[in-house]
């Protein structure tokens, strides 16, 4: 049986906005098609994982104080992570982990918290603590030359700069910065984004893109995923796109 292995990073710390839902949605859509899924969790004090052993690496967002603790921990795996990304392991990074994979995060007091430096972008917190990019967000993304909208919820104080290739163009909401036209960071096997919701729950096309990518890479074929009953997802998208974009 075809199998997808997911590494879930810091589930006990990066779990602020229902991000675990992304794992549940992946599991649901993988298993509904008769494939199997293995979910391994890694957190501080656990044995070191080899990132190359996985098809998907997932990390969510957490509270600020916890984020600096795990930044220190994650940096131990910098070379292994870089290698895994180069080898094509899929990385899905939400909010705090999106920031963490960049060059640095500059906090409100001007302190620089070094990132993993895997990607070139960097994040600076907004000088006004109370002012955050919060709200529903809709972006347009292109996956395998196919344009689709992605719906989520953003809640971030950090403003992210120097994005070489965004995940999507903002149709509604803020994006990487206040009133930005761009959201997130994208490359073939990396999606780094501020979108909660959880991200995958309302975006089955995106979820299936990730699943297909992983199966194609692992089994060296061009798989056509079986259609699932997406009635609720489609109704949800129709309702929300009407509400936000009109």
């Amino acid at each position: 049986m075809k199998e997808i292995k997911i590494l879930y990073l810091y589930p006990d710390m990066l779990e602020l906005y229902g991000d675990y839902g992304n794992i549940q949605v992946l599991k649901y859509r993988i298993e509904s098609r008769g494939y199997s899924v293995i979910i391994d969790r890694y957190s501080i004090d656990d044995d070191a994982p080899d990132f190359n052993n996985y098809d998907i690496v997932f990390a969510g967002g957490g509270a600020d104080n916890e984020q600096s603790i795990l930044a220190e921990d994650l940096i131990k795996y910098k070379d292994n992570i870089k290698d895994a990304i180069k080898n094509g392991v899929f990385f899905l990074l939400i909010c705090g982990s999106y920031q963490l994979f960049g060059k640095y995060y500059k906090d409100v007091d001007g302190n620089i918290i070094p990132g993993l430096d895997v990607f070139d972008y960097y994040t600076e917190s907004n000088p006004d603590r109370k002012s955050r990019c919060i709200g529903n967000i809709v972006i347009e993304v292109e996956l395998n030359n196919f344009k689709t909208t992605v719906i989520g919820f953003e809640n971030h104080g950090g403003q992210t700069f120097n994005i070489s290739r965004p995940f999507g163009n903002v149709l509604f909401g803020n994006g990487n910065k206040f009133n930005d036209t761009q959201e997130g960071y994208f490359q073939n096997n990396v999606i780094a984004t501020y979108l909660h919701g959880p991200l995958l729950s309302k975006n089955p096309v995106l979820t299936d893109y990730i699943i297909k990518y992983c199966l194609d890479r692992k089994y060296n074929e061009n798989i056509i995923l079986e259609n699932l009953n997406d009635e609720f997802e489609n109704l949800c998208r129709e309702q929300l796109l009407n509400r936000f974009l009109k």
């Binding site: 549940q24 649901y28 729950s201 609720f232 109704l235």
Partner: peptide
């Protein structure tokens, strides 16, 4: 209504037994 329907479906509850109404 649809968000919560998706949530419940994903937990493994049979989607044929879920009825969403705005």
């Amino acid at each position: 209504a649809y968000d919560i329907a998706i949530r419940i479906k994903t937990s493994g509850f049979d989607s044929c037994k879920i009825e969403p109404y705005l």
